[in-house]
């Protein structure tokens, strides 16, 4: 085991006919770590994953995998010789192969015989509790099942780095959580590193060791989920990483404060009027308008006040925006 990071991207630039899709992006992922790439669609998440996988050639910068330069230094290493596996947003299952043969595919490519590759594939399917689907083709599988097969195929590659390109984007909400737990558990079992692209802040904060915020091809901020949530670099980063209200600072210095929904409480010296109330199940969200601006306050339980009610509130904490 070397101390080299599993993935190291330095000053990466990618451009598609004239437009810059990635602009000097630098980041690294240590072994066993999960890095979430959080950004809106079109921010360059997929482009970054594609550059790491070797699907496109960067205009400048380097990509290093486990200390080996795979792009940016001489001829780029083709994807099949990079030590990584990928799970795709649209599953990318081959319509002509059964689940078993799909999962056996990576082993076959690394030289295993058909029987051996299939045995191994069946083990992986069993581990994911979908061995019963081994004989089915993608058209006969639900979205969640397809993505499990996609995950099994990636696991079969036994890579040092997993690339997850919004793997839950097309899944129904109730399948999503189960699949995500499975994915993280399996990836952690292997001890490999992972890059997880998503536009869902909750997903990113919940599963990652590090979060990188992307906007229009630029890296806005990198940090632990808590750093990114509590101390966003700017308003855009704040909005990207979760619900956020911006109010004028109460101490009259004219600055702006970021307030997350849990950072304020109903009841207190500050005055406001309830503009809207949403019952969310475990908690309720209150939109409070006052002299400092509008902010969202989250309280456990069902709604306690009517819209239009005058309420008092207090600020527990805040983060000054630059």
């Amino acid at each position: 085991m070397s101390a080299e990071p599993a993935l190291e991207v330095t000053d990466l630039v990618v451009s598609y006919d004239g437009t810059t899709a990635l602009d000097r992006v630098t980041l690294s992922v240590r072994r066993g770590q999960v890095l979430a790439l959080l950004g809106p669609s079109g921010s360059g998440k997929s482009t970054l994953l594609h550059a790491v996988a070797g699907f496109l050639v960067p205009a400048a910068g380097t990509v290093r995998l486990g200390g080996t330069t795979v792009a940016g230094d001489g001829r780029p290493v083709p994807p099949e010789r990079r030590d990584l596996a990928m799970v795709f947003q649209n599953y990318a299952l081959w319509p002509h192969l059964t689940a078993l043969d799909t999962v056996a595919y990576p082993a076959r490519r690394s030289g295993a015989g058909r029987a051996h590759a299939r045995t191994e594939a069946l083990e992986i399917l069993e581990r994911l509790r979908i061995a019963g689907l081994a004989g089915r083709k993608p058209a006969e599988l639900s979205g969640g099942e397809q993505q499990r097969v996609g995950l099994a195929r990636a696991l079969a590659r036994r890579p040092s780095l997993y690339l997850f390109d919004e793997p839950t984007a097309h899944l129904d909400t109730h399948v999503r959580g189960v699949f995500l737990a499975e994915l993280v558990a399996r990836q952690r079992d292997t001890g490999a590193a992972a890059v997880y692209a998503t536009h869902d802040a909750e997903e990113a904060l919940g599963l990652a060791d590090q979060v990188a915020l992307l906007h229009e091809g630029r890296l806005l901020q990198t940090g632990t989920p808590q750093q990114v949530y509590d101390q966003p670099a700017d308003l855009f980063a704040a909005r990207l990483s979760g619900p956020a209200s911006v109010i004028t600072a109460p101490d009259h210095d004219g600055g702006e404060l970021l307030v997350r929904p849990g950072w304020a409480r109903l009841g207190g010296p500050l005055k406001g009027e309830l503009r809207a109330v949403w019952f969310r199940g475990p908690h309720s969200d209150y939109l409070v308008a006052g002299p400092l601006g509008e902010l969202l306050i989250r309280e456990p339980g069902p709604p306690q006040h009517e819209i239009g009610a005058r309420v008092g509130w207090s600020l527990l904490r805040s983060w000054p925006l630059p």
Partner: peptide, 29 residues
């Protein structure tokens, strides 16, 4: 209509070279 680029990418990232990808995925589809 039938070969989304991701299908070929998935083959490459599973360890198949260009020729193998052509044979096992592209032409097959």
């Amino acid at each position: 209509a039938r070969t989304e680029p991701d299908l070929e990418r998935a083959a490459r990232v599973s360890g198949a070279g260009p020729a193998t990808t052509l044979l096992t995925v592209t032409l097959r589809l």
